[in-house]
């Protein structure tokens, strides 16, 4: 939205072409958002009040049957587990990603492009292929177990595949760049003189970090948390491939309503809408402190 704001400002600054240019520049984005975000979301909302058809599909109407099932403890428990996995993933990404982002952001300008490229190299390969690569590493007769056996650190293979551990590894691996990049953006803009001032005025490194660096990089952290948490909540491919589908994520349950035996589109739509609501809530919660900061700054 920052670019959009800028467009507004410059357009209203130019008195000969007020607002029109701004709208024109915004049109592609608005159309995109309408067609691919708002319209599908509304369709899902409408579907969620419909009735299931025999072959799949929805008979439109106003039925609360699907919504009543969303509140069922079975699905709330699954949603909660998805939130837990996404939360743990986000936390690990933050702990792992922050130092990396800091080092890259404070590196000399000559080295920065190289370091950033290293962070982004994984994106050159398909996400699914990278996830399957983890199968090769983690399986019983896999690379990691072979290595540990060779080194005689273990006497028999550790079970890593098809465990929650494997799922979390896969999720963290997938999402850590999404944490690093926004934090890097904040760290890069960090004014070194403020840190020096803190140190000169007697703050130790810890205090300087907690009182100066952390608050100043908070917008990056908020963005990173959001960019990791929201997709991690919906992503279930990692869970299927590395977790063996032993526990369902909310994404699995939704998929089953459309592509599984139930053929229950209205219920899938109701779950999808509920998840969208949960995302909106997460967004709202992470946005609020950011705003307070900016007001204070």
């Amino acid at each position: 939205m920052r670019q959009a704001d800028t467009a507004f400002e410059s357009a209203s600054g130019n008195r000969r072409a007020p607002r029109l240019t701004a709208y024109l520049l915004l049109t592609p984005l608005l159309v995109w958002v309408m067609a691919f975000v708002v319209a599908p979301a509304l369709i899902i909302l409408v579907y969620s009040f419909g009735e299931r058809q025999v072959l799949g599909g929805v008979t439109l109407g106003f039925s609360l049957r699907s919504w009543a099932r969303v509140g069922d403890p079975i699905y709330l428990a699954i949603l909660w587990r998805s939130v837990e996995y996404a939360g743990i993933t986000t936390l690990i990404c933050l702990v792992v990603g922050y130092p990396v982002a800091f080092v890259v952001g404070r590196a000399s300008e000559r080295h920065r492009p190289l370091l950033l490229t290293l962070v982004m190299i994984p994106f050159w390969t398909s996400f699914l292929i990278r996830t399957y690569a983890w199968v090769t590493i983690l399986k019983s007769e896999g690379l990691l177990n072979s290595l540990l056996l060779q080194l005689s650190w273990i006497s028999e293979p550790i079970e890593m595949m098809y465990t929650p551990f494997a799922v979390i590894i896969g999720l963290v691996y997938t999402f850590v760049p999404f944490m690093i990049l926004p934090i890097y953006g904040s760290v890069e803009k960090l004014d070194a003189s403020l840190i020096e001032a803190a140190l000169d005025l007697g703050a130790g490194p810890w205090r300087a970090f907690w009182k100066v660096i952390l608050p100043l990089t908070r917008p990056g952290i908020s963005a990173g948390v959001l960019l990791v948490f929201v997709p991690a909540l919906g992503l279930y491919a990692v869970n299927d491939i590395l977790g063996g589908g032993r526990v369902d994520m909310i994404g699995n349950v939704i998929e089953n309503q459309f592509k599984g035996t139930a053929r229950n589109w209205p219920f899938g739509a109701a779950l999808g809408t509920a998840l969208l609501g949960a995302f909106a809530l997460a967004f709202w919660l992470t946005r609020r402190p950011g705003r307070a900061d900016r007001a204070a700054g």
Partner: peptide, 17 residues
Amino acid sequence: MGPTAVEIDELFTDVKA
């Protein structure tokens, strides 16, 4: 299986969870 498929899905999801 007609509408029984919905019950199968719910039972399985529940026990699996």
